[in-house]
Amino acid sequence: MEERAKENERTIRVLANAIPDAIMLLDHNRQIIALNDAMARRFGYNYTREHGNSAIQLDRNGMFTSMESRIRELLHSGRPVHFEEKNQDEWLEISFILIPGSEGQNPRFFVQYHDITDHKRFEEQLKKEGITQIEQNMEQFQILNDQIRNPLQAIMGYVNLDCFQYRERIMDQIMMIDSLVDRLDRGWVESVKVRRFLLRHYRDNTDDVPDPMSGAKDGGRS
């Protein structure tokens, strides 16, 4: 019987260490009941030696401690909690799963850190490419609108000079084209807002409206 229990424990240990994710099992006091090698490496301690220690005490960079509210949420609701957390240069998808205790026993909970750094980097790269594409589109919008309005301006000027019979009708047509270009302009204003939002949130490079009280420095007359 004892031999079988040991064999089971060895099997579980092999399985737990075979996965790249850091996992551990904690009691309701955040004491470590079990953890795999990946989690032990994360704590920077040897699993065997630290078995039974508090996860919070081992948490030297404070990341786990900062998750205390999530743990309380888990213990309160009983529903699994999943969230993403950035820890220095790495991104983790963290899961807390409650394991109800047997009769009269306190519940335990399972913690899993899944490294999603590559995925996040790829996502950020896509966003940056998206911003670049938007910037290119905006530039094209601006050039096109300017290029359309130039001949409109010239036509308007020539018509006003010496076209009397159809002047009104031609002017109406010019205004219709101009209102279409206007609609493109409004779309462009929207895209400016989108760009500003993307830059602010994904490029850490704010692009705010300048302070009107400072303005361009060369505006002074005196």
């Binding site: 300017d146 309005r149 130039n150 301006q153 462009w188 204003v189």
Partner: peptide, 17 residues
């Protein structure tokens, strides 16, 4: 005098010139 619609940034930055 241009076909380019100004943005608030354009006005605030260059309107004083």
């Amino acid at each position: 005098i241009t076909g380019k619609q100004p943005t608030p940034e354009d006005i605030l930055q260059y309107g004083g010139l």
